Amino acid sequence: MPTATDFKDYYAILGVSKTATPEEIKRAYRKFARKYHPDLNPGDKDAEAKFKDLNEANEVLSEPEKRQKYDQFGQHWNQASQGGSPPPGRGSTVSTEDFEQYGDFDSFINDLLGGMRGRSQSRTHTHQTAPGGFDDFGDGFRSQAPAPDTEAAIALTFSEAFHGVQKRLLLGAVALNGNRQNGTAPQDDETINVRIPAGAKPGSRIRIKGKGRPSVFSQQRGDLYLTIEVLPHPFFRFEGDDLVCDIPLRPDEAVLGAEISVPAPDGSVTVKVPKGVRSGQSLRLRGKGWTLPKGGRGDLFAKLQIVTPKDLSPIEQEYYEKIQANTSFNPRAQLEEIKL
């Protein structure tokens, strides 16, 4: 008969509460089974013992009938499963006289649980070694670690990202610049050609199937994910999803309006600046922005910046003085009413 020191708290082993749902128990078991699996801890006796306890705890708590008996009878639950007599003073509220009416302990349990035994016995739970060297713990869960994916960054110029480009990558270098782990990586001498489609933006990702690191279990390759980095451009920039550029204006162009030439990714565009624009105002150039992944073009926003001349010719000096002497415009008129 088990003693108090033989008792294993299956809830504590799995790190869950006694009110844990079946889904919580399953998640906890999977988490720790991966951590302490013997294949990942070769020669570690402590990990092997913990893995054994995890399997035992999961076997009991994942079965409704066994969990019911474990909750009611604790360390004696297995006795109850084998049809023995329940220990005195443990969990049950049924008196000795009430229990004697049953022929054996199984009859008592069947009556107590309302026939749960029949329903729960139809569900099987396996723990077997399957082809490929992984363990099958039932419910579709296998302890084989998935093939590891590789994350890496690839830098493109604005032109390469806008037009699209084909890059030749050395996978060993990609792994070293990405997240190489456990000393495993794709073959160092393997090179691949990667086609970056037109319209790649900073932060976008490209998936290359079967070019990640090999699994330590099956040697199956994971996927390679390339995160796009776009090198800064001296004129164009991204603001969110928009392509933006700054366009300088003379004071007279801002006041009187003008037609100006604005650079776009594929050539210059003539734009009409309306009268009275202010510094910081943007003009929207439809269809002149970034290449869209599904085709077409986005918009380009030309942000106007009024620039004053530093060196004036004599005639410019004269006319600016005349404007200053004769203007009635006061851009600070509304500031006269501001007080604390």
Rank of each mutant, 00 (worst) to 15 (best):
residue 41 N to M: 11
residue 139 D to A: 02
residue 177 N to Y: 04
residue 276 G to N: 11
residue 264 A to T: 14
residue 208 I to K: 15
residue 19 T to P: 02
residue 202 P to I: 03
residue 317 Q to G: 10
residue 140 G to S: 01
residue 168 R to Y: 07
residue 270 T to C: 10
residue 38 P to R: 03
residue 33 A to S: 15
residue 7 F to C: 05
residue 8 K to H: 08
residue 291 T to V: 08
residue 71 D to K: 01
residue 242 D to N: 09
residue 220 Q to W: 07
residue 7 F to I: 00
residue 200 A to S: 10
residue 202 P to Y: 11
residue 72 Q to V: 00
residue 249 L to G: 03
residue 288 K to A: 12
residue 43 G to M: 10
residue 198 A to S: 14
residue 35 K to L: 13
residue 224 L to H: 06
residue 114 G to S: 03
residue 89 G to Y: 01
residue 50 K to G: 06
residue 257 G to K: 04
residue 12 A to V: 04
residue 260 I to C: 04
residue 302 A to P: 01
residue 128 Q to W: 07
residue 261 S to Y: 11
residue 188 D to Q: 15
residue 159 S to A: 15
residue 117 R to D: 00
residue 140 G to I: 05
residue 18 K to R: 15
residue 84 G to D: 08
residue 167 K to T: 07
residue 291 T to W: 00
residue 329 F to H: 07
residue 125 H to M: 12
residue 320 Y to K: 12
residue 15 G to C: 11
residue 208 I to N: 04
residue 219 Q to C: 11
residue 146 P to D: 00
residue 133 G to P: 07
residue 147 A to G: 07
residue 304 L to G: 00
residue 331 P to F: 06
residue 64 P to W: 02
residue 314 P to Y: 03
residue 4 A to M: 11
residue 216 V to K: 13
residue 170 L to T: 02
residue 258 A to D: 00
residue 83 G to C: 00
residue 43 G to Y: 10
residue 195 R to D: 13
residue 51 F to N: 03
residue 86 P to K: 04
residue 48 E to W: 05
